[in-house]
Each structure stands twice: as structure tokens, then as C-alpha cells.
């Protein structure tokens, strides 16, 4: 699309997938985000860290306009996907959410079979013309989510019968099946045990090849492990943002330093 070339001139080493300019978000009269300016880079994992209630999830949900679901939420400012303002009049939200997928904090597989869970998105967007095509999409999505081997013999069983970690990977497969460009993850591992967490963190590194990933996490260690760029949110503003190693070893802002060192949080 259009603005990609402009950003390419500015920074030849990476492409910007999503940008946010002067983003203010209100819940009724209460303001949750103040003038957020943040760029999300293509094919990188960007993590959003900060203490609870600082606006990370709110920000994340703005990116795929999930906040539209909440009555009292008001969004002002500009968010672009590949240069196009996603809050513009006439933007198709359904299409947007097909391009930007989401994985939630608590795994929420549908009460359907594993196969149907993954096939759901592909069905509604009409991505498969025939059953074999659909099978292909389901298989490859499950493989990319690293779940195929474990469930290939029981695709007809209900998705709710899997363990927590498997359910979350199922949700990731479900999101992948729609073939998005971006995957948003809202604290995807907070309800999982360490082994399942590790598995998903591995997954993120594999997924990075084909998708842009934005992850909200309350675990700094996780952010340090999986992301290339990190943004630190505090009380609704982005205090600091930059390369992950730099944020964690040499933060510029004192508030960042305090959070990193565990002074609060």
C-alpha cells in the first residue's frame, strides 16, 4: 500500500506495520491512555510491559478495534495499519479483524470440535472453496501452532477437553487459520503452567517469521526472552520504548529503571 514506501525511506532496516499517533482513550469520563505514540515493526515481537491497570490491554484492544464492543469506550487519535487509518470512516471492522488476530488471556476455545475451532475463521471468511482445502488450512494452522502432532488423531473431540496450554495453542491455531498479518496476544501465558508457557514462547519465535506479533505481558522475564522491542507503559502513557536488550539493561527513564528493578509493580 501507499505509505510503506515513505517509511522505508526513513528506516531501511525494518518496515512499520502499525503506527499510533496521539492516541487518547476514554472510558466514559475517565481517560485510560494519554497521547500514545508507538510504532509496531513488521515481523518482530513487540512486548508491552508495565504494572497492572496502566493501559497495556486497552492499547492492545485498540489495534483491532475490540474496544468497539465496549459501550463507554471512546478512541481519539490515529492508528494506521500499513499506512491506512483504521478508525477512518468506512473502514470495515470485520476485515480489519481478519488481518489482525487476537489471542486472549484465558483460553476461550469454542464448544466445538478441535477441527471446527480452527476451521471457524476460515469458514466465515470463505477462505476454502472445498473440504480438502479446509483440511489443508486446519492442518497447517495446527502445525504452525505446534499442536498438530498432539491432536491429529482426535480432531473431532471437543476443544474444551484439552489442557490449558493446548487450549491456548488451539486459540493461536484458530487465529492463524484466518491468515492475518498481525497477531495480538493479551497475556497469553498468565493462565498457564511454566512448561506450557515455555512451549508458547518457543512458538512466538517461530511465528515471527510470518507474522507481526504484539504481546502484553506482566512478566519482564518473558518480555526479555521473546521480544525484540519493548514499550513500558505506566499510568496510561508510554514512558519508554526501544530495543528490548537496551530497555532491560540500560533504561533511560528513571521510572523504567524503578519498574525493572522491582521497586514497584
Amino acid at each position: 500500500m501507499t505509505a510503506t514506501s515513505a517509511t522505508q525511506l526513513r528506516s531501511p532496516l525494518y518496515l512499520t506495520k502499525l503506527t499510533t499517533r496521539d492516541l487518547d482513550v476514554f472510558y466514559g469520563d475517565k481517560q485510560a491512555l494519554f497521547s500514545v505514540n508507538l510504532d509496531i515493526r513488521k515481523n518482530q515481537v513487540t512486548s508491552l510491559i508495565g504494572p497492572s491497570g496502566c493501559g497495556k490491554s486497552t492499547f492492545l484492544r485498540c489495534l483491532n478495534r475490540m474496544n468497539d464492543v465496549i459501550e463507554s469506550c471512546r478512541v481519539e487519535g490515529k492508528i494506521t495499519l500499513d499506512g491506512e487509518d483504521i478508525y477512518r470512516e468506512g473502514i470495515d471492522v470485520v476485515q480489519l479483524r481478519a488481518r489482525i488476530g487476537m489471542v486472549f488471556q484465558k483460553p476461550n476455545p469454542f464448544p466445538k470440535s478441535i477441527y471446527e475451532n480452527v476451521a471457524y475463521g476460515a469458514r466465515i471468511h470463505g477462505l476454502a472453496a472445498s473440504r480438502p482445502e479446509l483440511d489443508e488450512i486446519v492442518t497447517s494452522s495446527l502445525q504452525r501452532a505446534g499442536l498438530f502432532e498432539e491432536v491429529k488423531d482426535r480432531l473431532e473431540e471437543p476443544g474444551t477437553g484439552l489442557s490449558g496450554g493446548q487450549q491456548q495453542r488451539l486459540c493461536i491455531a484458530r487465529a492463524i487459520a484466518v491468515q492475518p498479518d498481525v497477531i495480538l496476544m493479551d497475556e497469553p501465558c498468565s493462565a498457564l503452567d511454566p512448561i506450557a508457557t515455555a512451549r508458547i514462547e518457543e512458538l512466538m519465535e517461530e511465528l515471527r517469521e510470518n507474522y507481526t506479533i504484539v504481546i502484553v505481558t506482566h512478566s519482564m522475564q518473558q518480555a526479555a526472552r521473546v521480544s525484540q522491542r519493548t514499550a513500558f507503559f505506566h499510568l496510561g502513557i508510554v514512558v519508554e520504548e526501544g530495543e528490548t536488550p537496551q530497555i532491560f539493561t540500560d533504561p533511560k527513564d528513571p521510572r523504567t529503571r524503578d519498574y525493572i528493578t522491582g521497586r514497584f509493580g
Binding site: N64, M66, V69, V94, Q95, L96, R97, A98, R99, G101, M102, F104, K106, N108, P109, F110, P111, Y120, G121, I124, H125, C171, R174, A175, V178
Partner: peptide, 20 residues
């Protein structure tokens, strides 16, 4: 959460209701 899961995948409201 089920509704949000469906909407997050880009389903319309009627699709979410009918299918989920």
C-alpha cells in the same frame, strides 16, 4: 469470552450468534 473470541477472528455479530 466466546463472543469476543469470535469477533476477534473477524466474524460479524450475526455470524457470532448463529455459529457460536
Amino acid at each position: 469470552s466466546l463472543r469476543e473470541g469470535s469477533l476477534g477472528l473477524g466474524a460479524t455479530r450475526s455470524e457470532t450468534i448463529r455459529r457460536v
